[in-house]
Simulated scan of single mutants.
Amino acid sequence: MARRKKGRDISGWLVVDKPAGPTSTAVVNKVRWAFDAKKAGHAGTLDPDATGLLAIALGEATKTVPFVTDALKAYDFTIRLGASTNTDDAEGEVTATSDTRPTDEEIRAALPAFTGDILQTPPAFSAVKIEGERAYTLARAGETVEIEARPLYVESLDLLARLDPDHAQLRMVCGKGGYVRAIARDLGEALGCFGHVVTLRRTWAGPFDLDDAVTLDDVERLARTPELDELLLPLETGLADLPELPATAEGAARLRNGNPGMVIASDAEYGEMAWASYQGEAVAVGTYRAGELHPTRVFAS
């Protein structure tokens, strides 16, 4: 007999302002412990040294994680110009240096090449799997890591400030799978000066913003208290980027059993991913087809 998971059946989203240091998994585990929750997950990894928005789902909200993971995200980051590292950030060993320093105008002129639909090669020190092994495991073992370029959509990439000749602050809004470290590396190469990330902060992701965030210290201070429960955002927050389709009473009952259910017409298009609600609560996510939602995920009532 399978062992039952310990903890509470509690559902919702908590937005944490992740500090530098802990891994994203460590933050999720801390939040799960603080809520005594059965299940928890996050919508997009941040490197240990990165800070900012980490959206954590509890319980039934974990079923909405893919829709936040696929959404656009924004990052503010600082590039150190004049040096590359083997990790593409400040933690790695310097692999090349240059005395060349681009002007602000040269930086701005180079940015359009990194926007729109581009191909990006993830860093050697990344969680990308190569024949079943994580790339960072192979890289740390001294093996040569060859990773194929992957498609990435970058909505915008802007120069925010030139802090000094050696440092530039930028903001990127991109889709799923983007590596800011790779942008810094490739931009430095394009400018002929090399470059790597020294600070990185995620400011928003899909429907979530840092204005909604709590600190990890707050999570620890309020652990196992009703005050912490009050900070949870509804499960439905993770579905904010999808059309909402109110279901009929009969439709909601059918959907909860995993069957197509009748929904009230909305602006959703045929074949579009949407979610059905009944009396204000999410019932299911699925594909809209001619007055019905065909569920792919059903939420417990």
Results as ranks from 00 to 15, higher is better:
Lys5Met: 12
Asp17Asn: 13
Asp17Lys: 04
Thr23Arg: 03
Ser24Glu: 06
Thr25Arg: 10
Ala40Gly: 06
Gly44Leu: 08
Gly44Val: 03
Asp47Cys: 01
Ala57His: 05
Glu60Cys: 11
Glu60Ala: 14
Thr64Ala: 08
Thr69Lys: 00
Leu81Ile: 01
Glu91Ile: 11
Thr100His: 11
Pro102Asn: 05
Asp104Ile: 14
Glu106Ser: 08
Ile107Gln: 00
Pro123Trp: 10
Leu138Ser: 06
Ala139Pro: 02
Arg140Trp: 09
Glu143Tyr: 12
Pro151Ser: 10
Tyr153Val: 15
Val154Pro: 01
Leu157Asn: 02
Leu159Cys: 13
Ala161Met: 03
Arg162Ile: 07
Val180Ile: 03
Arg181Trp: 05
Ala182Asp: 02
Ile183Asp: 08
Ile183Asn: 08
Cys193Leu: 05
Phe194Asn: 05
Thr199Ile: 10
Arg201Phe: 14
Arg202Gln: 06
Gly206Leu: 09
Pro207Phe: 12
Asp218Pro: 03
Leu222Cys: 12
Thr225Asn: 08
Leu231Ala: 13
Glu236Arg: 05
Asp241Glu: 13
Pro243Trp: 14
Pro243Met: 15
Glu244Gly: 02
Gly258Gln: 07
Met262Pro: 02
Trp275Glu: 03
Ala276Arg: 01
Ser277Glu: 10
Gly280Cys: 06
Ala282His: 11
Ala284Asp: 02
Gly286Ser: 09
Arg289Thr: 10
